[in-house]
Design a protein around this nucleic acid. Sequence first.
DNA 1: TAGATTGTTAATCGATTAACAATC
DNA 2: TAGATTGTTAATCGATTAACAATC
Lengths: 220, 220
Amino acid sequence: MAREKNKPNEETKVPKAVVNRLSLYLRELQRSVRNGRETISSSQLGNILGITDAQVRKDFTWFGQFGYPGIGYRCQELIGEIRKILGTNRIWPVALVGCGNLGSALLGYRGFGEQGFSVVLAFDSNPELIGKRIGDLPIRELSNLKSDLSSRDVLMAILAVPATAAQEVADRLIEAGITGILNFAPVTLSVPERVSIAEVDLAIELEQLSFAVVKQLGKS
Amino acid sequence: MAREKNKPNEETKVPKAVVNRLSLYLRELQRSVRNGRETISSSQLGNILGITDAQVRKDFTWFGQFGYPGIGYRCQELIGEIRKILGTNRIWPVALVGCGNLGSALLGYRGFGEQGFSVVLAFDSNPELIGKRIGDLPIRELSNLKSDLSSRDVLMAILAVPATAAQEVADRLIEAGITGILNFAPVTLSVPERVSIAEVDLAIELEQLSFAVVKQLGKS
DNA sequence: TAGATTGTTAATCGATTAACAATC
DNA sequence: TAGATTGTTAATCGATTAACAATC
């Protein structure tokens, strides 16, 4: 067990970049455990991720003291602590909205389950799809949103609808009680402050790559 | 036309965050044009994205002078400039490696085409899949990698294989001449400096959301 | 001209890193 | 104990913002 906690994450807001690295640490720690490793030092962890040991230690400082001087961090224990911090020390029920190509693929994505997320509801607006199943989940009408979500205590949704529909559907999700949206539609959603957005724009990822590739090309 | 260029992107390295915002600007500008807008100011652009007008202008400063005092930016023109900077003022042929659930969905993703990317090759290691088609692309053996890629001048690849295979496949891609990899496998790839990686870890995105949702929950 | 908005400099803010006493 | 490595402070570095002359 970690020995104590300094800051019960209260006023001081943790930088986004720190929380993101927490997920990377978690991923590496899980891999280390699979490889039979018991402890790991900040410099080992940093090396793998391409950051300094100081940064690794500083990041954890936001949440408590998890290490052992002279030894490092106990992998299993640190995994537990990070999951507690991220809130993934439980299983989150998640709703999928938009059951097209991408949505269907996401429904089957095994990585979600491995990290504690379970897609328990699927919605679409296309009448032809309603009632059909993806895997063993029936596709539901959007009109059922509110009752379905609340009966299953769903707070997070994956939004995989066309860009043109995204804002409107997001509004309905929020109205139905959703407070976290993973948005795959290439639009900037406008949402109330209490609602969080994570965004994945696949084309933008390729654009970033394009920039880097062109730059590299210029060097030769 | 923009009037001039200060810095022919040479020594001074452009921050990653800036390049990422470039893609967001582009997305908003394209939407503005679809809505019939002709010009846009840095404060309008900033408002939509939740950043300051100063930041918008500063970002562009890295690449040249694209605006008109008193008027703002001409949308169509700025779109052209950003595409030039990102290198998407042409069509990039892209290879898909890993034709499972996610890979197949990505192959059909319309957003790629809209931004100038075309998936022209698909590979998988599963012998049962070789020769089958997704859409109208035949799935090829990995052993054809090198010759296929070079005959099509492919420099970028989308990696959608299981985590356990990702590093090995990445090595083969690089050996075959790929210099940009969009990685969907939840592992930190180790690659030579000349190769660029963009990473999308879907579970991590949900974890970030989880953190935010839990924090919000604590407030009520 | 008056009003709007740029490009850019300097000031501020925040994040990363170096260094080291504390500790296992 | 000697060696390793933490947690944390202070120094550095880099990114964001405010302010304003230049300009359409």
